[in-house]
């Protein structure tokens, strides 16, 4: 009765394709690029910033070779409740967000508490392109080419104290520029948290862009977290404050529904959401569902972080 044509997702734009020679010499390229980037990539980078032209970045071996989800879908299907609870809302309403000037303060158990202007964060190191899978707790997934820096780069620059065990991420909550904040669906501001070792893990990314350009507002501009082995909501958007603390912080979703959302929220096909299964997912653009992988396919890198823990209890 109702026929659904396969979506036309094979239209790969040139920007999505890694040139063959780069692909084949990827590791060589990386080695030189990394060394090169430290010294000289900074000048063109900040120039690119000023003009909002495509951002320069180096490829990362941590990227997945999977085909990225089309930009149109990445920027029109978002959970960002600060702009409304419908997934079409952020693309419609996020234009009011002001991303310059923007500061991020890092405080708490650190030797050098500091407030960064957003442009200073861009200058912390060479941007890397990290193509990551993103798995939403709702049962859909995407593949997104992020641009950013390892969060560890930022955290190391403020020198965490030995007593710091957790990191708390506080998102912006400005009722004037973020209309969704006027409704109390969530106890604003949006809070998220990681254990310090999770935050320092090489996969954990502070994203400043995607698809080669600065982060679109609906995706959490001007900077957001990306923790690819956890459900998407763990990756706070439009972050204004990062606090290093001793005790496990409360998160927005734990406060909203502690039975359904735990602190860890690692992607886990074995642990269902109380109301729906997490065993499979629909990759945006695909018709059939895929099996969900433990830790969203990043088990090799991150499973040791949870050695000896019962992940059914620590969900």
């Amino acid at each position: 009765m109702l026929s659904i044509p396969a979506r036309r997702t094979n239209d790969v734009t040139p920007s999505e394709i890694t040139p063959r020679e780069v692909f084949e010499r990827r590791r060589d390229f990386l080695g030189t690029a990394a060394g090169f980037a430290l010294g000289t990539a900074l000048a063109p980078l900040s120039a690119a910033l000023a003009s909002e032209k495509p951002l320069a970045s180096i490829k990362s071996p941590l990227s997945t070779p999977e085909k990225p989800t089309p930009l149109k879908d990445v920027t029109s299907y978002n959970n960002f409740y600060e702009f409304g609870t419908d997934k079409a809302d952020p693309a419609l309403h996020a234009h009011t967000l002001k991303t310059r000037p923007w500061t991020v303060s890092i405080e708490g158990l650190v030797k050098q508490p500091k407030t960064f202007a957003i442009d200073d964060i861009f200058r912390l190191g060479a941007l890397e392109e990290r193509i990551y899978r993103l798995r939403c707790v709702e049962g859909w997934s995407m593949v997104i080419p992020w641009l950013g820096l390892p969060l560890a780069t930022l955290l190391k620059s403020v020198e965490p104290l030995g007593s710091a065990k957790y990191v708390e991420f506080i998102s912006a909550a400005d009722p004037k520029t973020m209309p969704g904040v006027n409704r109390s669906v969530i106890d604003w501001p949006y809070l998220e948290g990681l254990r310090l070792d999770e935050a320092m893990h090489p996969l954990t990314l502070l994203a400043l862009g995607l698809y080669g350009e600065v982060l679109p507002k609906q995706n959490g501009a001007p900077l957001r977290l990306v923790v690819p082995w956890k459900y998407g909501f763990k990756s706070g958007k439009s972050i204004v404050k990062i606090r290093l603390v001793e005790k496990q912080p409360q998160t927005a979703w734990m406060k909203a529904n502690p039975r359904e959302y735990g602190f860890y929220s690692n992607v886990n096909p074995e642990v269902d959401h109380p109301r729906w299964s997490q065993a499979s997912e629909r990759r945006i653009g695909e018709f059939l569902k895929r099996k969900t992988l433990p830790f969203n396919g990043y088990a090799d890198q991150v499973a040791p972080l949870y050695a000896g823990m019962d992940l059914k209890i620590n969900f």
Binding site: L2, S3, S76, Y77, W140, R282, I284, G285
Partner: peptide, 22 residues
Amino acid sequence: PLLRLVWGAWNDTLGANPIEFI
């Protein structure tokens, strides 16, 4: 409402996740 969905599915205007939308 049904024709709208069929039309939208055919022309790919149901958003990023058309199955969920339908």
